[in-house]
């Protein structure tokens, strides 16, 4: 098995609708194979059985429309696992049970199927920009293809059965990653989060459950998975996201109109630090990259660096630095390499 973990995922380099605010869209479906205990209560033999059944399904006729590579997590090293998490291709939870887990990955990495995470299968479609409906179309087709040879645990009343009650029914988690520097600078972000939470949506940080919102990046997703059709869940999220996008754009134009010098000063100072600093912590890089992205999106920092912002965001994460520059790096070394990488990227405009 050869896998180049430094390979870029589609969302990192391709553009998409409304991508000046919506970084990426994701649809995830949770499924379990009938008559086998969920991973929580599964024995090693059960897990092996799940791996074998999914590996078999990978090669069924219907799956030929989704060519994928099979990665056994036990054959990847810690740095490679870290990279897959940083690219949002797998979850941190999957990496924790790497002994019996695997991931099926499409060539452009927009499509992945995690095996033996919290549920037997977690299918994911991850696209750049606001493309929830397209992601759902692909996830639906992937589900159908896998189902042609896999029998999923299903209950007439409760729908698809999952290990956690929060996923039962459709098993769907639709989410978008939003970059909201305007709302943050106008100090309106908490109002937005509060109102979004009141209408059945969840707001999280960059790396999902339990993580902080770094670099003004927020994940918004549906909470309820039962009692609504997938299309309705997605429409609801899409409508709310459209409103957040409008609010963010309004905040941005207010900042440009009301305090142009202060805004330009802030964003160009961040550019200066990214372009010239020799030591850059992960926290500082994430904050400054948010300013840089903001500056590019409003046309202030022009021309933009050739490397896409999503790529820079991921490339400055610890796993990527470790992989690119090799060796076991101390945090101090990492900060030096991060600064070097950013200087080179910003010189190339």
């Amino acid at each position: 098995m050869t896998y180049d973990a430094l390979k870029k995922s589609l969302w990192m380099y391709a553009s998409g609708p409304d991508d000046d605010v919506v970084v990426s869209s994701r649809i995830r479906l949770a499924r379990n194979i009938a008559h086998i205990p969920f991973p929580e209560a599964a024995s090693d033999e059960h897990m092996a059985q799940v791996l074998a059944l999914v590996a078999q399904a990978q090669n069924n006729d219907a799956m030929q429309q989704f060519p994928t590579q099979w990665l056994s997590l036990s054959e990847l090293d810690a740095v490679q696992l870290h990279l897959l998490i940083e690219k949002h291709v797998i979850s941190p939870q999957l990496a924790q049970c790497s002994e019996h887990s695997a991931v099926m990955l499409s060539e452009d990495e927009s499509l992945s199927v995690m095996v033996n995470e919290e549920d037997h299968l977690r299918m994911q479609v991850l696209l750049p920009g606001l493309q929830l409906h397209e992601a759902w179309r692909q996830a639906y087709a992937l589900d159908e293809a896998l189902e042609s040879t896999l029998d999923f645990a299903f209950h007439d009343q409760l729908g698809y059965l999952t290990s956690c009650l929060t996923n039962v029914g459709t098993g769907i988690r639709a989410s978008v990653m939003l970059h909201l520097p305007g709302l943050a600078l106008k100090k309106r972000i908490h109002d937005v989060i509060e109102s979004v939470t009141q209408i059945g949506l969840v707001v999280r940080g960059l790396y999902g459950e339990g993580t902080d919102a770094k670099g003004n990046l927020y994940q918004v997703s549906n909470q309820m998975t039962l009692g609504k059709r997938e299309e309705d869940i997605i429409d609801h999220l899409q409508n709310v996201v459209r409103q957040i996008v409008d609010h963010e754009k309004l905040s941005r134009s207010q900042l440009i109109h009301d305090t142009p010098a202060a805004l330009a000063d802030r964003l160009w100072r961040s550019f200066g630090a990214l372009a010239h600093a020799h030591i850059m912590t992960s926290k500082e890089a994430t904050e400054k990259l948010s300013d840089l992205r903001f500056g590019i999106d409003i046309g202030l920092i022009d021309p933009p660096p050739k490397r896409p912002m999503n790529e820079l965001l991921v490339m400055t994460q610890p796993g990527f630095l470790q992989m690119q520059f090799g060796d076991e790096m101390s945090p101090m070394h990492r900060d030096v390499y991060r600064a070097k990488l950013l200087r080179e990227a910003l010189a190339d405009r």
Partner: peptide, 14 residues
């Protein structure tokens, strides 16, 4: 959690 107890979404092929 869901304010509902009835699945109305996608159904398995079988």
């Amino acid at each position: 959690i869901h304010t509902a107890t009835e699945h109305v979404g996608k159904l398995p092929r079988r």
